[in-house]
Write a protein that binds this DNA or RNA. Structure first.
Lengths: 224, 224
DNA sequence: CCGTTAAGTGAGTGATTACTCACTTAACAG
DNA sequence: CTGTTAAGTGAGTAATCACTCACTTAACGG
């Protein structure tokens, strides 16, 4: 799992407001936080990698924590949220014949994004790795996932009778936790568990999420 | 997500070979590693919580890293592996009519385990949180997941025509990554995302994994 | 040419870090 | 009573940590 960064994307609109040294600090901090984690990277290391004096970091960020939080805000806003959101309206505008067709459109789009150098994997790593220790960060990410307009697509399919008759929020959580769990496991936790991954492995995965494995997956309701 | 520990289970068979102080060190280290992460917890803190001199730690472990690795070995062997393995033979011995029935048996069993105080959540957290920084730990966990005899159950079901005709290793990986991803997200990453979880939410989840959401999930093969 | 302001510098500071070592204590065999 | 061994101690150490501050540099308006 190589560490590469597409920084224009991480910085977003702030790109113009920052000096070259400020951008270098953010870039270096991103790389090191992703590689070694927050506590294990020192401000001295960041300064060295960015070719900047250590004091320069603290001219803009009062503490190391403030620097980290500034970076996570950038990553969530410019990387993670767009990753889930882009193209969702276009997909919503269309009418799909099945959940599988809809997910096919959504997920293959994202797989391509991941395989291209567009998506800064390090940026995602950096955020995910710190999630366990930062409830506020957890809330931010959870809120982002909950506001995705997936429910509207599901409702649409449900009204057409193409979808099982479960509560919309339950289905959204099932799908999102499945996708997020898969991504976290693959990118951050156990990359080599998916090392010998076929190109069409994702096809299996989409079908797995959309249609399940069971041959008699005939959509009977869930008894409880 | 409260932190509780069932220590007889973590220590396993080594319980007898260790003095009270040695056990206290492992217990304190577990709690602090889980709460704050490896780098953020100092040996001084561990000694204080264990009510032990700092030097006592280094009588048994040459370095802080050695202590951590000893603990992860204990957790993987005595907690994580049993979590996936226990009762799997009994389940394998029976013949299930569907994947859903098999998963129902396996997963409800584990949910009960999690809800009881039997499963030391902190022990799992401690390992998962360090996974991103330790490739060797990743390999250990991945190897453990791959050697699970899930494929035999799947083969059994496939021969009965109850299961879609995909490669066994692909299905094992799909199921395992789904379960592991779900657990990691729920326990370590985004606990509040699943905060208002119904008791029967797991029923939806089992059906989701086994049968999918699609009403026409009729088991057509995956084209690629 | 001067005055102001913002960006950047790097030696320095006190606190904290993982780890050491000379030492005490206690149990037990001969 | 003596000698040996293992368990445990805690003051001490060099290194590293996040952060500070007096300072330089450069750009720009009047």
């Amino acid at each position: 799992m190589q560490i590469e960064i597409n920084f224009e994307k991480v910085l977003g609109e702030k790109q113009k407001d920052l000096t070259e040294k400020q951008k270098a600090i953010i870039k270096a901090a991103c790389l090191l936080f992703a590689q070694k984690g927050y506590t294990a990277t020192s401000t001295r290391e960041i300064a060295q990698l960015a070719q900047v004096a250590e004091g320069t970091i603290f001219k803009n960020y009062a503490t190391k924590d403030e620097l980290f939080l500034a970076i996570t805000d950038l990553v969530i806003e410019n990387i993670i949220e767009p990753f889930f959101m882009t193209g969702l309206e276009e997909i919503f505008a269309q009418t799909y014949n099945s959940l599988e067709e809809a997910l096919q459109a959504i997920i293959t789009n994202r797989i391509q994004l991941m395989q291209s150098e567009e998506l800064p994997v390090a940026a995602i790593k950096l955020v995910v790795q710190e999630l366990p220790y930062r409830p506020q960060l957890q809330s931010k990410v959870a809120a982002m996932l909950e506001k995705l307009p997936l429910q509207e697509i599901l409702k649409n399919l449900q009204e057409q009778g193409k979808l099982i008759d479960w509560p919309l929020d339950v289905m959204q959580k099932l799908i999102m936790s499945s996708i997020v769990g898969f991504l976290i496991t693959k990118i951050v936790m156990l990359p080599q568990f998916f090392a010998h991954e076929l190109p069409d492995y994702t096809q299996y995965w989409i079908h797995f999420i959309a249609g399940g494995l069971s041959k008699q997956g005939d959509g009977e309701k869930c008894e409880n």
